[in-house]
Simulated scan of single mutants.
Amino acid sequence: MERLDKQGNYLAINWNDIEDSIDKATWEKLTEQFWLDTRIPLSNDLADWRTLSDADKDVVGKVFGGLTLLDTLQSQDGMSSLMADARTQEENAVLNNIQFMESVHAKSYSSIFSTLNTPKEIEEIFAWTNSNETLQYKAQKINDIYRHGKPLEKKVASVFLETFLFYSGFYTPLYWLGHNKLANVAEIIKLILRDESVHGTYIGYKFQLGFNELNAEEQENFKEWMYDLLYDLYANEEQYTHLLYDQVGWTEEVLTFLRYNANKALMNLGMDPLFPDTAEDVNPVVMNGISTTTSNHDFFSQVGNGYLLGNVEAMNDDDYLFRFDDDDQK
């Protein structure tokens, strides 16, 4: 993206002359659903927290530690790497918004920790997060692509992270929400999920613009790289899931959830699903945690007061999917 005209003048962004209408629609969507963790009464979950077993508490702490690490990666390295390859000035503005909200997400987990955990427990969670091999593997694998990958590779890494790798952590609060526990913690997760659905859809759309500019041979070579990356990340995610969930007996259910969301990541990128798992295969309690709200929406619908407690909008399959025909490209 050129920020200078032919005379070398720096170009002001002009939102009245939009190159890609999806940029404007995404900006409006993201700003309409702005939220902060300080608006959620997390202390109301303390009674529920005290009823959990030590193993359950251990899982909660570790999954949120892992999510903190991945959101830190997105906010500190991911979005800045994508900005270097933005097609429009408005896309840069959208990515700036996404970068800020990824920082809000990362901070939100610390708000959960400070409410539920002692200072010693928090220290232990972050020590585990910053040294666990399987968690560090996926963070470093994605970060290496951010630092050294090609523009389309960076977009694939971002979508795989936001629409797939996060979900081994999201399973836990959605599970407890389905069992009427930790409702305010889950409210934050639902707000994060709502953001991530837009992030993944938007970046996937930008990927499709670039991918469709490749010739047939280049597309096939790129698909091979992409699916190899997905298989590698899934193999590591299997290990991570066993490490977290064997102690509570949820491993197989979480892996089903992961495969389902891996398919969603591929759909965001305009690709066909890989795994046989569908929404019907996922634990219905967890799926209800995603979808139980007062209204459905599509990607461009109005949000209104959606960030308020108890009014988080539902995510549906359309939130993960933005495909377009050649005639739709601008």
Results as ranks from 00 to 15, higher is better:
148 H>V: 01
149 G>W: 09
149 G>A: 07
156 V>R: 00
157 A>C: 14
158 S>D: 03
159 V>T: 10
159 V>F: 10
162 E>Q: 15
165 L>T: 00
165 L>Y: 00
165 L>V: 04
167 Y>T: 09
168 S>K: 01
168 S>Q: 06
170 F>Q: 05
171 Y>M: 13
171 Y>H: 11
172 T>C: 12
173 P>Y: 07
173 P>H: 12
173 P>M: 14
173 P>W: 09
173 P>N: 12
174 L>V: 04
174 L>T: 02
175 Y>K: 08
176 W>C: 02
177 L>E: 00
179 H>V: 06
180 N>D: 15
181 K>F: 06
181 K>M: 10
181 K>H: 06
182 L>I: 12
183 A>W: 00
184 N>G: 11
186 A>P: 04
187 E>K: 08
189 I>Q: 02
189 I>N: 02
190 K>W: 01
194 R>E: 07
195 D>R: 04
197 S>Q: 04
197 S>M: 08
198 V>N: 03
198 V>I: 15
200 G>F: 06
201 T>F: 05
202 Y>P: 08
202 Y>E: 08
203 I>M: 06
205 Y>R: 11
206 K>I: 05
208 Q>T: 12
208 Q>D: 10
208 Q>H: 13
208 Q>K: 13
211 F>E: 01
211 F>R: 00
213 E>I: 05
216 A>C: 06
216 A>G: 07
217 E>R: 14
218 E>G: 14
218 E>T: 08
219 Q>K: 15
219 Q>V: 11
220 E>W: 06
221 N>F: 12
224 E>C: 10
224 E>L: 14
225 W>H: 13
225 W>D: 05
226 M>T: 11
227 Y>D: 04
227 Y>F: 13
228 D>P: 01
229 L>Q: 08
230 L>G: 01
230 L>P: 00
232 D>F: 13
233 L>A: 10
233 L>P: 00
234 Y>V: 12
234 Y>F: 15
236 N>G: 08
237 E>I: 05
237 E>P: 02
237 E>L: 06
238 E>G: 02
241 T>Q: 03
242 H>N: 15
244 L>Q: 03
246 D>I: 10
246 D>C: 12
250 W>Q: 13
251 T>Q: 15
251 T>R: 13
252 E>L: 15
252 E>C: 13
253 E>P: 04
253 E>M: 12
254 V>F: 06
254 V>R: 02
254 V>C: 11
254 V>A: 09
256 T>Q: 08
256 T>A: 09
259 R>Q: 15
259 R>A: 06
260 Y>S: 03
260 Y>K: 06
261 N>H: 15
262 A>E: 01
263 N>I: 06
